[in-house]
Simulated scan of single mutants.
Amino acid sequence: MATPSRPNPEKAAQLVIEKHFPNCQAALLAGSVVRGEGTSTSDLDIVIFDQVLPSSYRESFIDFGWYIECFVHNFSSYKEFFESDRAQAKPSMPKMVSEGIIIRDANIVNMVKQEANELLQKGPDKWSSETIDMKRYFLTDVLDDFKGCSKREEAIFLANTLAELSIEFILRMNRQWIGSSKWTIRALKNYNAELAKDFIVALEEFYQKNEKEKIIQFVEEAVEPFGGLLFDGFSMGKNKC
């Protein structure tokens, strides 16, 4: 990843720490460059720990030839982000800490890494029966719209929604972490590579040939082990009235 105009990621991270956060106690280099997935447009994700900060913040800038994103915490504020990520089942901060390469340490990083690893290994909370029914209902509703949709531009957006909802359903029903954007399919691939491949084939058939059948089949098979599609008899909030 190094070029004549910029240092390699680890050296660049060290330079960033020395220039922008010289008094921090600890720092980690994380993100795609650490996982070996970096591209020409990848940035550097750097997690900073500074005990004198009153609160966390995020900062982006360009330096040393790199786009850089810094996630800056004190020794307790990162816990709030761990908990928020856990509640959303999208463990962005725990993954960065777990995967991160130590750039600077003051006998805190291994402890934080242990917390991150324990959270990741535990997995997200199990959905309640009410949440499962609600997710089945919304999948059913979007799928019905998709089946009957005759306008290509609307069907494209419905297919995208089905992709997000069905992958979320599969992963959460199997106590797996989820993701957003490109992390949606990566999360499914990490859980079941063959299933992810099948869904990509289904999407490609729709996008290229306007054939809906494989997407419909994928969604129906996703919910079938958990009661199947749900419309008739569904209720939400009725007991509160």
Results as ranks from 00 to 15, higher is better:
residue 62 I to W: 07
residue 41 T to H: 12
residue 167 I to W: 02
residue 234 F to C: 07
residue 116 A to V: 05
residue 159 A to Y: 06
residue 65 G to R: 10
residue 233 G to Y: 10
residue 57 Y to S: 14
residue 207 Y to T: 12
residue 73 H to Y: 15
residue 238 K to C: 04
residue 115 E to S: 12
residue 219 V to E: 04
residue 183 W to C: 01
residue 2 A to W: 09
residue 161 T to Y: 01
residue 19 K to G: 00
residue 141 D to I: 03
residue 188 L to G: 10
residue 175 R to Y: 03
residue 58 R to C: 12
residue 3 T to Y: 08
residue 180 S to M: 09
residue 175 R to C: 02
residue 10 E to K: 13
residue 190 N to T: 07
residue 87 A to W: 04
residue 154 E to H: 15
residue 198 D to P: 06
residue 93 M to P: 04
residue 80 E to K: 11
residue 238 K to P: 00
residue 140 T to N: 08
residue 17 I to S: 07
residue 48 I to P: 03
residue 186 R to A: 12
residue 218 F to L: 04
residue 128 S to Y: 13
residue 139 L to V: 04
residue 163 A to N: 13
residue 16 V to G: 07
residue 169 F to R: 08
residue 135 K to N: 13
residue 23 N to S: 15
residue 71 F to Y: 15
residue 77 S to T: 12
residue 78 Y to F: 15
residue 102 I to V: 12
residue 144 D to P: 03
residue 136 R to K: 13
residue 235 S to E: 15
residue 207 Y to S: 14
residue 42 S to T: 07
residue 22 P to M: 05
residue 77 S to E: 02
residue 35 R to K: 15
residue 139 L to C: 06
residue 39 T to A: 05
residue 13 A to R: 02
residue 225 P to A: 07
residue 211 E to T: 11
residue 72 V to R: 05
residue 80 E to V: 06
residue 101 I to N: 13
residue 69 E to Q: 14
residue 123 G to H: 07
residue 6 R to I: 09
residue 61 F to T: 14
residue 157 F to I: 10
residue 17 I to L: 12
residue 206 F to Q: 11
residue 171 L to K: 07
residue 156 I to N: 07
residue 73 H to L: 06
